[in-house]
Design a protein around this nucleic acid. Structure first.
Length: 374
DNA sequence: GACTCCACCGC
DNA sequence: CCTTCTGTGGAGTC
C-alpha cells in the first residue's frame, strides 16, 4: 500500500479513534494501597454525614466488599450488615484528586488531546497519533494501562472506539482491568444487545419510561422513530437517543473545561425550620464559598440556596445580580433573604441545606485581580 | 431571561 | 432499611 500524504482536508476526514479510561473502584483501591495490611479484605469508603455514628452512604467499595453485596450509594448501616469485618474509612477527596491528576497527566503522552471527565475517568483522542490505526491505538492504551498498574498499583478499564459515547460504553463492558475495542464496522452489533441503561443519560427514571414502552435493549430503542422519541422525551433528549442508539456521537473532547458553578450542601445535626438555628452555620459556609471562589479569581452573579426537608423533598430559591457579588457580606445577605423566603414556604422541617453560586462573570468594578489579594 | 424542579453522572 | 455530596443540562412556567 502506498503511504498517503496527509493534506489538511484529509486530516479532518480521518475517522476518529477515542479511548476512555475508567479507574476500577478508584477510591477503595487508593485506600487499599494506603493500608497494605488490608490486602484481600473488604474496604468501604464512606461519606459520614455526622448526624449519628453510622449515618451516611457508601462512596466506593472494593471488589472484596462488592462480592458481599456492598454498593456505592448504599447506607453505611446496611453495608455494615453485609460486611461486618470490612474496613470502613472516610472519603479523602484531596488525596484522590492528587492521584487522579498524576494518573491522567501521564495520559497526555498517549493522545492528541485529553479530557479529564471526572475524578476517575478520562478520554484521550488518538486519531492523529495513530493515523486511524486501531492496532496502534491498542498498543498505546495497553501500555498506558500497564504503566498505571505498575506505577500506582491501580487498575483501570479501557475502551477504544470511534467516539466518546462508544468509548465510554466499551470501557464499562469488562471490569475490572477490562480492555474493549469497538471498531466502526462492529458498532451496531456491539450496541444492539445492550440494555438501554448502558447509554449515558439513561438513568432509572428514563429506563422505567422505556420499559413501559417495552423497550429494553438498544436495538429496540433504535427501532423507534425520531418523532416518537422527541414526543416522549423532548427535542434535545429525543434526538440524542435517536443518534446514540446508532452509535452516532460527534461531540469533541472538552479540553479546557471550566466549572460553571460551585456548591456545597450539608446534613444538619438537627432538623429545623428556624432561620436562627441555621444562621451561624450558613454564614460560615457562605464565607467559605466566597473565599474559595475569590481565591480562583471567580466572581459570580447567581446565588441559590437549597433545602431538603425530612421527606427528602428539595426546594430551591435563587437570584441573579446585575453586577458580580462584591463581598462575602453581600453574599451572606443575599443568602439570608433567599433562605427566609424558602423557610417561610417550607411545609416540613429541613434535614439538609446548601448554597450554590454560579454565573461567573468579570470582577466587579473592573478591578485588577491582584488588587483583591495581598 | 429568570426561576424552579427534575433527572442524571460520578464515587 | 436508610438515603452524601457535587455538578450539568433540560423542561415548564411566567
Amino acid at each position: 500500500m502506498v503511504q498517503a500524504i496527509v493534506f489538511p482536508q484529509e486530516e479532518d476526514a480521518m475517522p476518529r479513534i477515542v479511548a476512555h479510561v475508567d479507574m476500577n473502584a478508584f477510591f477503595a483501591a487508593i485506600e487499599q494501597n494506603a493500608h497494605p495490611e488490608w490486602k484481600n479484605e473488604p474496604i468501604v469508603v464512606c461519606v459520614f454525614s455526622g448526624r449519628t455514628l453510622d449515618s451516611g452512604v457508601v462512596s466506593s467499595a472494593s471488589y472484596d466488599a462488592r462480592k458481599l453485596g456492598v454498593r456505592a450509594g448504599m447506607p453505611i448501616v446496611q453495608a455494615k450488615q453485609l460486611c461486618a469485618k470490612g474496613h470502613f474509612v472516610p472519603v479523602n477527596h484531596t488525596l484522590y484528586g492528587q492521584i487522579s491528576d498524576q494518573i491522567f497527566t501521564r495520559l497526555f503522552a498517549y493522545g492528541d488531546a485529553v479530557e479529564m471527565a471526572s475524578i476517575d475517568e478520562a478520554y484521550a483522542d488518538l486519531t492523529q497519533k495513530t493515523q486511524g490505526d486501531y492496532a496502534h491505538a491498542e498498543r498505546l492504551m495497553r501500555e498506558f494501562q500497564q504503566k498505571i498498574q505498575k506505577e500506582f498499583n491501580l487498575g483501570c478499564s479501557v475502551g477504544i472506539a470511534p467516539n466518546k459515547l462508544l468509548a465510554k460504553i466499551a470501557s464499562d463492558f469488562q471490569k475490572p482491568n477490562g480492555f474493549t475495542i469497538v471498531k466502526p464496522e462492529s458498532v451496531q452489533s456491539f450496541l444492539d444487545p445492550l440494555p438501554v441503561k448502558s447509554l449515558l443519560g439513561i438513568g432509572p427514571k428514563t429506563e422505567q419510561q422505556l420499559v413501559e414502552k417495552n423497550i429494553h435493549t438498544i436495538a429496540q430503542l433504535r427501532a423507534c422513530g425520531a418523532g416518537e422519541l422527541v414526543a416522549l422525551f423532548g427535542a434535545a433528549r429525543g434526538q440524542y437517543f435517536f443518534h446514540a442508539s446508532r452509535g452516532i456521537d460527534e461531540s469533541p473532547l472538552e479540553t479546557n473545561y471550566e466549572k460553571q458553578q460551585r456548591s456545597s450542601i450539608w446534613t444538619l445535626q438537627r432538623d429545623t425550620q428556624d432561620w436562627n438555628e441555621l444562621r451561624a452555620l450558613v454564614r460560615e459556609k457562605a464565607l467559605e464559598l466566597w473565599d474559595e471562589t475569590a481565591a480562583q479569581g471567580k466572581f459570580f452573579t447567581q446565588i441559590s440556596v437549597v433545602g431538603v426537608d425530612i421527606a427528602l423533598k428539595q426546594m430551591t430559591r435563587s437570584t441573579t445580580l446585575n453586577v458580580a457579588c462584591v463581598s462575602s457580606e453581600q453574599l451572606f445577605s443575599e443568602v439570608e433573604q433567599l433562605f427566609q423566603s424558602l423557610l417561610s414556604n417550607a411545609p416540613l422541617p429541613l434535614r439538609r441545606v446548601g448554597l450554590r453560586v454560579g454565573g461567573f462573570a468579570s470582577p466587579p468594578k473592573q478591578k485588577r485581580l491582584n488588587e483583591f489579594f495581598g
